[in-house]
Design a protein around this nucleic acid. Sequence first.
RNA 1: CGGGGCGUAGCGCAGCCUGGUAGCGCGUCUGCCUUGGGCGCAGAAGGUCAUGGGUUCGAAUCCCGUCGCCCCGACCA
Length: 569
Amino acid sequence: MRWSRLFIPTLRDDPADAEVVSHRLLVRAGYIRQLGAGIYSYLYLAQRSLLKIQQIVREEMDRIGAQEFYLPALNPAEVWQESGRYTVMGDNLFRLKDRTGRDLCLGMTHEEVMTTIARSEVRSYKQLPQIWYQIQTKFRDEPRPRNGLLRTRQFIMKDSYSFDIDPAGLDTSYDKHREAYCRAFDRCGLKYSPVRAHSGAMGGTQSEEFMVMCNAGEDFVATCEKCNYAANLEKATSKLAPVSDSPGPAAPERFATPGKKTIDEVAAFDGLPEASHIKTLVYMVGDKPLVILLRGNHQLSEAKLETISGGEFRPAHPQEILDIFGANPGSLGPIGIPAKKAPRIVTDLALQGRKNLVAGANADDFHIKGVEPGRDFATEYFDLRVIEDGEGCPQCDAASGATLKVSRAIEIGHIFKLGYKYSESMGARVLNEQGKEVAPIMGSYGIGMERILVAAVEQNNDANGIAMPRSIAPFEVVITPVNTRDAALTSVAEQIYQACLDRKIDALYDDRDERPGVKFKDADLIGVPWRVTVGRQAPSGIVEVTRRSTGQRSDVNITDVVEFLAKQE
RNA sequence: CGGGGCGUAGCGCAGCCUGGUAGCGCGUCUGCCUUGGGCGCAGAAGGUCAUGGGUUCGAAUCCCGUCGCCCCGACCA
C-alpha cells in the first residue's frame, strides 16, 4: 500500500480523554476513533491488525478440529429465558423490541444459540465430540465502559463450545483449547500466563484465564515467585503464618466497648492485635441471612462467597441486621444471636483452631473476649477471604519462604468447563452407547480479539509509540525514501516495495512528500516492526534497515534486503 | 447507581471569576523554501462556544434544566 493514498490519521497530541497507554496510542496512531461510550470505529490499521489476530486464532482453532459458524447477534428473548440468563444477566444484556413488540436481545455470548442447534440436531454419542466456534461481535451493556478497547459495549470475541458425551471427553476438549490458546497467543507475540480462575455460580469444575500482566489490566492475579502457581485473586489461596493464641478464659467474657465499632477501634481499645478479632459480616441470600466470620484484618471475597452461597446475595441492610441480631453493625458476633433467627454461620479457614478471640456481643457497645470457634459456637469453615500480596505460596513449602505477588492483568482468554448447565436447562439430549438419553457435557471458551491488540500495545510501546509484534502488525515493513523528489531514491524504494509484495511481505510504501522526520515519527508511532530507509547510501547500493522494537540498524545491500526482511522475526 | 471533572475550529487548550459580538499552538489549504527525526517564511480557510430555557440593551461568560464524554467507586458470564 502507498501511504500517500491511505487514511492513517495520526495525531501529534494525546487525545484528552485517553488515560491508559494502549488507548492513547491507538487513537494517536490512527487505529481507532470513538463513536460513543464504549463504542469504537476500527479504522484501516486496527482492522488490518484485528484481521491478522482473527486469522491466527482461526488457524489454531481449526487445528484442533473446531468448526467455524456464523451465528445471529440478534436473538429472540425466549432462547435466553430458557437458559435463565434473560434475568440473570440483568442490565448487561442489551434488550430491544421488534415492530410487533416481540422481545429480542443482542447476544453477549452464544451458549444459548449453540445449545439450541445442538439439541435439535445432535442425537447420538456417535456424533460427539463437537467443537463449534465463531468469531463475531458481542454486545454488553457495560455499567462502565472504560480504558479504550479494554472494556467496550461492542467487541469481537472468538467463542467456542464443546459438546462431549462424558467428563473425560470434556477434559480432552478443554485440553485441546488450552493448547490452541497457548499457540495462538504465542503467535501473537504476547507474554501471558494461564491462571486458575473463579468459575462463578455456574458450577463449572475447572476454569483458567489467560492473563497478560500490565498496569492497564482490570483483573488481579496472584503469582508465586518460586513456583508456577498463578491464580486470579478471586480464586487465589495462600499459606498464612501460624498464630499462637494464649489459652484465654474457660468461657467467653463480655466487656464494655463504648463507642468502639470498627475492628481497629476495638483492637486499640482492648490492646489485642486485629488478627485476634472476629469480623462479622451479614449477607442476605435470597431472604435468608448468612453470617460470615473473618479474621479482623481480612477481607471477604465475594467471588468465593458465591461458590458457597447457593444463590444471589447482597449485603444485609442495617434494619435487617438489627432484626436478626438485636444489635447494630459494630457489635455483631456469632455468640448470642437470638435463637429463633438461627442464621447459617460460615467461617473463614483462617479462624479454624484459633482461640481467645474478640467478637461483638450482639449488644451495642459490648464485645466478648475469650471466644473460640467450635467450642463457643457451631460453624462451617470455608475459604472466604481475599489473599494479600506477600502471603505465603499455597503450593510451595512454607519453609521455602516463597511469597505471592499480586499484579494487575488483562484477561485475553478464558477456558471453562461448563458442565451440564445449558444442556440440562435447554433440554439437549443424546443417546449414549447403552441407548439411554443423556445430556451432553459442555465447555465454553472465549478470546477477546481487541484485548489481544490492547495487550500487544501495552506490552510493546515506548515514548515514540507502538512497536507491534510482526505477526499482528498492520504492516510488517515500511519503505521510506528520504526524499520523494529524488528519482534515484524513489525508484529504489519502489523496487524494494514491489519485491516485498512478490515475497508476500506485507509492505507499506511511504511515498508521501514529507520531510524524513515526519515519516520516521509516523512509522514509529503506528508501530511497523521494520523500516527500510532509502537514503544517502542508496546510490551505492545500500539501504538501512531499522528494527522498531530495539532501534537497531543494519546496512544491507539493496539486492539482499528482501531476503533479509523475510528472515527476521 | 453514588462521587468528581469536562464539553469553545480536525487535535490540544485559553477566554468564563469581573457579560460588550471568540483567541493561541498544532494540523489543513495556497505559494516559496527545505529534505536523515514532527524544518523555515508568507498568505488563507475553518467555530450553531454540547443543547433547551431564563436573566439582561447585550450571554461562551450569570441562573435553571437536559444531553454527551472521561475518571474514581459500586457493578462486571
